[in-house]
């Protein structure tokens, strides 16, 4: 198992290099370091010296990928790409183009992101499982059909609509919660209620439908039929047989997103003005702050890969037949 995890982590290195290459290529395809410097310095400091100084200070004064001027050992290493990528691998995010420490920003903004994403994830999962179980209890009935129609309708409504409706009714009409914004400490709860509720509602349609299918698959298996034939009460079958076994595919399928919860949700955070990592990234993209964008993409990729590894591990935990090799 340990050997497997180590190998997976080693395999992550080429992937992360690829991610970095892609972000670099995308960014510099249209945006030369000169243009970045101009955008950051503004029109006032347009003289070439200021631009050169800006580039030198931030390490953008080297060639992008290949340094022809150097001999063989500096050919690939004395470049912007190598310089900036190697630091990322030891999680040294450096400074943003504006001069702030990215690592500090991330530490500070991680908590609001987590404060929204974690409750949304946990409550959403619980609600969806309960709903799905309820529908499975009344399977092949009118209630089942009606619930599935409701799910498709919920899925077809734009997520933005839930945000608008929530902000309009809860915040404006009934004045229960603030429309948007964020405060630290216990005050945060007031600001978190609405985003969490809307996040949960937005996911009910697809979640309930998917979990119902998984539970139904379980309900059609032989051991369930045997249990019923033996005269086990329907509720016992549901909670003792179908629920625990149906939970396995559900839980293993959501493990992959758990590490990414740190990144927060770009959308929810920008809708509700929550100063988390999602809105941090969005602001950086709009300000063309390449250092921040690169760090966030890198962090996101790492968390995703960790999620994949956790998924594999979770398989072995719930199913002893699975061996990692």
């Amino acid at each position: 198992m340990l050997a497997y995890i180590v190998r997976r982590l080693l395999y992550a290195i080429p992937i992360l290099i690829g991610v970095n290459l892609l972000t670099f290529a995308l960014f510099f395809m249209v945006n030369s370091p000169d243009q970045m410097a101009q955008a950051q310095l503004g029109d006032k400091h347009m003289d070439p010296q200021a631009i050169e100084a800006w580039k030198a200070q931030r390490g953008y004064d080297k060639p992008l990928f290949i340094n022809d001027a150097e001999d063989s050992d500096g050919l690939l290493t004395d470049t912007i790409f190598f310089d900036k990528s190697v630091r990322l691998f030891v999680l040294d995010f450096g400074k943003s183009d504006e001069g702030r420490s990215i690592a500090e920003d991330i530490q500070q903004r991680m908590w609001p992101s987590l404060a929204v994403a974690l409750p949304t994830f946990v409550i959403g999962l619980a609600v969806n499982i309960v709903f799905a179980l309820f529908v499975v209890m009344f399977r092949a009935s009118l209630f089942d059909t009606a619930a599935m129609v409701a799910c498709v309708v919920l899925m077809s409504i734009s997520g933005v609509f839930y945000v608008f409706a929530g902000q309009f009714f809860f915040a404006r009409m009934w004045n229960l919660v603030p429309i948007s914004g964020y405060l630290g400490g216990m005050d945060a709860i007031r600001f978190l209620i609405l985003p969490v509720i809307i996040g949960v509602i937005g996911g009910i349609g697809s979640g309930t439908r998917l979990y119902r299918t998984l539970f139904l698959e379980e309900a059609n298996k032989d051991y369930v039929r045997t249990a019923r034939a033996k005269g086990v009460p329907e509720l016992t079958v549901l909670f003792r047989h179908i629920l625990p076994n149906g939970l396995i595919p559900i839980l293993t399928s959501v493990v992959v997103v758990i590490p990414s919860l740190f990144m927060g949700s770009l959308l929810v955070e920008s809708f509700f003005g929550i100063p988390g990592l999602g809105s941090y990234t969005l602001d950086a993209i709009q300000a063309q702050d390449f250092a921040v964008v690169r760090s966030m993409v890198f962090l996101g990729s790492i968390l995703y890969i960790v999620g994949l590894i956790l998924t594999d591990i979770s398989y072995t935990l719930v199913d002893p037949r699975v061996r990692l090799s």
Binding site: L22, M263, G300, Y304, I305
Partner: peptide, 17 residues
Amino acid sequence: TLSSIPGILLIAASVLL
């Protein structure tokens, strides 16, 4: 590699580019 980049980030970055 492609799928490990958060989709919305990739979209937002590319569109602005």
